[in-house]
Amino acid sequence: MPTATISGVAVDVNDEGFFEQPDQWTEDMARELAAQEGIAELTDKHWQVIRFMRQEFAEKGTGPTVRVLGKTSGVTVKELYELFPKGPAKMAAKIAGIPKPRGCI
């Protein structure tokens, strides 16, 4: 299993850079992960999505799809794509330190 060093800590990631162990994640790491994804600054809205991703993962064992995010995170689909232009569910999962959500919708 590959490891990556984020905020000076070695963490387990998959080939695409998604966390394998969400409990290795800290909020400090999110800023560095976001910068790697081209997001210079995490706004409150970003954090709202990131916390929602982690909460969903903790409850359901999988990250939410964009549709679920749009319906239940309090951030609209339009805003989600502005916050995370390269795909909200995917980018937010990476920054939130959870595995990549699998789903077709």
Partner: peptide
């Protein structure tokens, strides 16, 4: 629709 939406979800 699924392909278009899926494309956007992948950026």
């Amino acid at each position: 629709l699924i392909m278009a939406n899926g494309a956007r979800a992948e950026g």
